[in-house]
């Protein structure tokens, strides 16, 4: 461990968990930027997937050696259930509330109400199955709810249900990758040993920000043009 980190934890009493989050978070943000600029996975911007990655991390509340994906995702099953429930309800409520012709914010508020009760149900289920740690972080699933539900409904209005679903799926995948970074003990060890190496993401992002080539997804999107063009 770097002496800087050591003195922060031991000398100043800052929780190591907090330090780990702050140091790994730039990596998550860079990963999301890479997904967008080079691969072409849009997701709901950068804020939504990173906050969801954080919430996923808090829900599973564990550290894993390396990238033990199976264990990571298994421990996240309630988080995944909540995510899917939010999207499903967001979609269903749009169909139902469309006929009633309500103003926008009240309509979102009704969607939120239903979501709250659904999460309550999932929490109860988790508690019944002795998943106690889950209930203690109850406030975070609510944050996810607000964030995704609002985003999802907005995109649904803007670009249609199909696009919104695709973006929700992309957000989910990106958030899972971010969650894998956040909950890996190995990554934490590396950033604790070399905290300033995290700053390397800045030149990486400068490169990403100047990247004007086609995204991987665009090679697929324009495949007909690419093969038929003279």
């Amino acid at each position: 461990m770097s002496p800087w980190i050591n003195s922060m934890i031991v000398g100043l009493g800052i929780p190591d968990q907090t330090i780990a989050l702050l140091l790994i978070f730039p990596l998550v943000a860079t990963l999301i930027a890479f997904f967008r600029q080079v691969i072409g996975v849009k997701a709901f911007g950068i804020y939504t997937p990173s906050i969801i990655a954080l919430v996923f991390f808090m829900i599973s509340d564990a550290r894993y050696e390396g990238f033990d994906l199976w264990a990571m995702f298994y421990d996240l099953r309630y988080g995944i259930a909540i995510y899917i429930a939010v999207i499903a309800i967001g979609m269903g409520m749009r169909v139902v509330l469309k006929k009633v012709r309500l103003l926008y914010l009240p309509r979102v508020a009704i969607t939120m109400t239903l979501l709250s009760f659904t999460v309550l149900g999932i929490l109860a289920l988790g508690a019944a199955l002795q998943r106690t740690g889950f209930a203690t972080v109850y406030v975070f699933p609510l944050i996810v709810l607000v964030v995704i539900a609002e985003k999802f409904v907005a995109v649904q209005i803007e670009k249609g249900t199909k696009t919104a679903l695709l973006l929700a799926l992309e957000t989910f995948v990106v958030a899972l990758c971010g969650y894998a970074l956040l909950s890996s003990q190995t990554v934490q060890n590396v950033v604790f040993a070399h905290p300033f190496s995290v700053l390397l993401v800045i030149p990486v992002n400068v490169l990403l920000g100047k990247w004007t080539g086609l995204r991987v997804a665009e090679y697929i999107r324009f495949r007909d043009v690419l093969t038929r063009m003279k």
């Binding site: 600029q37 072409g40 100047k210 990247w211 004007t212 080539g213 086609l214 995204r215 665009e218 090679y219 324009f222 495949r223 043009v225 690419l226 093969t227 063009m229």
Partner: peptide
Amino acid sequence: MEILAQAHKILGMNARNLEY
């Protein structure tokens, strides 16, 4: 390889935003 050679003719999202 042909596809890669043609790629510079296509305007992608990155180039649209950054250069135009």
